[in-house]
Nucleic acid binder design. Structure first.
Lengths: 174, 174
DNA sequence: GTGCGTTATATCGATCCGATAAAATTATAT
DNA sequence: ATATAATTTTATCGGATCGATATAACGCAC
């Protein structure tokens, strides 16, 4: 899903600044989406050019606050785009890329990578468990449970097989 | 990991055409990496400009075959880049993006998305199980098992909760 | 020799990103 | 009330990636 579509969807609930939109994506949708300022402001600019959002700068000067709000035609555009979204997912892993070439890596580096990956999964699981489930729709809760099931599996796998795999790699080497 | 680094790593084993390199990424590393021609040929071009690879066009004409081979300084460059790789992962899901806004989606569309996601996970699990494990290093097998654990978790989750979630969404709506 | 399917190279406009820069607003301390 | 610090906010750049599209070389069957 393009970032511009995501912005439209989030603006359905309430007008927001660009900075708040980014915070919302990272804080509430971060288990399956991302946003950077480098992409966000151009996306908002093109939504505004297409009259799907407006931006209100009253009450601020220069590069001050701009509240973005969705328009009626923006609502329609979001509905159309949402109906056409596929079930696609996209996963990239520097961690697995490195492990794929484990025979070229120092054993210490391999252990460090596994520890770092495990720590990252645990942190993200904590973050997911801390989300305010009570005020979410079922669709939103579904995304959290789905992401949790995958994080749990990765944690269980790394915790159970991480050390053993390093031992096999060591054995393969000597 | 940048695609150019991946190319260096794959060329350690044997020289390959650009087309074969893409096939190798998609076929053997597809559970954690991707490559497109749009990125691959420019990456090979910049590796050649940096003298990390050479390309041999003898035996072909015009836009004919080019065999890319890693150089000695390419091997060194790969070793340096590999040592600096982090444990980062990056996950994006149009599927979860759509489900996040499930209250704006037709129930039929929600069911279709879940079915499509489940089918995709099953197909990828079959592909992973069909990989030639016997001729892989332990690091390579590790990547397959890790990816399998996550696909299994997603399949179990969708199979177990998919229908129930649609029922809750239906109930929330009426 | 011809035709077809596969292999192969290549590029474009669009989207995204991390890094960086600058400035406005808000909060806090005095 | 004022000054300072922290947070919020906008913005852009060069670089990487992508899907789509175009073109052509190669290999194989007949």
């Amino acid at each position: 899903m393009q970032l511009s579509t995501l912005c439209l969807g989030l603006l359905l609930a309430e007008p927001m600044t660009g900075y708040a939109l980014k915070g919302k994506v990272i804080g509430t949708l971060g288990h399956f989406q991302h946003a950077s300022f480098g992409a966000l402001y151009p996306a908002l600019g093109s939504l505004e050019a297409g009259r799907f959002v407006t931006s209100d700068r009253s009450g601020s000067t220069g590069l001050g606050k701009r509240l973005y709000a969705i328009t009626e035609s923006g609502r329609g555009e979001f509905t159309e785009r949402l109906a056409e979204v596929s079930a696609a997912e996209n996963f990239r892993s520097d961690f697995l890329s490195a492990l794929y070439f484990a025979d070229q890596l120092a054993l210490d580096d391999i252990e460090r990578l596994i520890d770092e990956r495990l720590a990252n999964h645990r942190a993200e699981r904590r973050r997911l468990l801390a989300l305010p489930i009570a005020s979410m729709t079922e669709g939103q809760r579904f995304t959290v449970r789905y992401a949790l099931s995958m994080r749990n599996a990765a944690i269980e796998f790394l915790h159970g097989e991480g050390r053993a795999s390093v031992a096999v790699i060591r054995h393969e080497r000597y």
